[in-house]
Design a protein around this nucleic acid. Structure first.
Length: 270
DNA sequence: TGCGATGTTATCAT
DNA sequence: GATGATAACATCGC
């Protein structure tokens, strides 16, 4: 569920809480060992112990803690959450716990256990998987245009490909394509330049708007103490099957494209 | 009761 | 290389 705006929201929430804390250890709960992607939980714990958190930031949908001599990273996948408290010491769904020298903790909670935790000395493993940042200065209209020309994928699966552009997921891709009047199955090198321009603007604008509203909560997304994202009320197509299009009143269609549920208007998205 | 769908992504087969 | 299916898992709703 969490896409770029939700990940950014989590980071902004955690920054003041975690600034300059020193990690004592990483605890491994419920024997969910698949969750630890780079090393065993013991090895990660040994690597991070005694290190102070220098910075909390984001690369695509990865949450990265810069430590003194390495990086601890998290990926929330569908249902992961980073929370600072749990009720009644109830460890259900808690896959890991970072325990700090001030006796506070950060819990990784994930009821589907798709989320991942890893430790690395070098960011190259993440950079290999994650492409251009849509809110970074490298992402310009001419570069976007050029990259789209090089590819022959359908635009929707291409925008979901994190190594092509990072941070977009199913919700925001549908929203961006609706706003720029593009059919999700258009081949990327066939896009008209005016549509590319609109798509570029939509990506940047929608992500910024969603961040300012703390992301979108459909079912699961929460940050901190049960806070939810408020962008849901501004969604124009996502989860609006059979409801009237806000532009042309035609009923929104739902189809599957690359096994992903896709909402669009077949009149104004061509 | 049972089945299919759910916002993600790495991996494997074709 | 591109594309598609699958697995990882729990819950909800029809």
């Amino acid at each position: 569920m969490p896409e770029l705006p939700e990940v950014e929201t989590v980071i902004r929430y955690l920054q003041p809480y975690l600034a300059s804390k020193t990690i004592l250890k990483l605890l491994h709960h419920n024997d969910y060992s698949n969750v630890f992607s780079s090393h065993s939980p013991k090895e990660i714990s040994r690597s991070v112990q005694g290190q102070t958190i220098q910075k909390i930031w984001r690369r695509g949908k990865y949450i990265v803690f810069t430590l003194e001599c390495g990086y601890l990273y998290f990926h929330l996948r569908m249902t992961g959450q980073l929370v600072t408290t749990i009720e009644n010491q109830n460890h259900k769904y808690i896959t890991a716990e970072l325990f700090f020298s001030d006796k506070t903790s950060l819990y990784f909670k994930d009821y589907r256990k798709f989320g991942r935790i890893g430790y690395t000395q070098s960011l190259s493993c993440i950079n290999q998987l994650v492409g251009v940042e849509p809110l970074g200065s490298w992402f310009t209209m001419p570069r976007f245009q050029k990259e789209l020309k090089k590819r022959k994928w359908q635009i929707k699966p291409l925008l979901l490909d994190q190594s092509f552009i990072c941070g977009l997921g199913n919700i925001y891709v549908d929203e961006c394509l609706w706003r720029s009047c593009i059919h999700p199955q258009t081949t990327s090198n066939k896009l008209q330049s005016k549509n590319v321009e609109m798509l570029y603007q939509s990506i940047v604008t929608i992500l910024r708007e969603a961040i300012s509203l703390n992301g979108t909560t459909i079912i699961n997304f929460q940050y901190g103490e049960n806070n939810v994202g408020n962008f849901k009320q501004f969604l124009k197509v996502y989860a609006r099957e059979r409801l009237p299009c806000f532009r042309c009143k035609n009923k929104i269609k739902k189809v599957f494209i690359g096994q992903r549920g896709t909402y669009f208007c077949n009149i104004c998205q061509r």
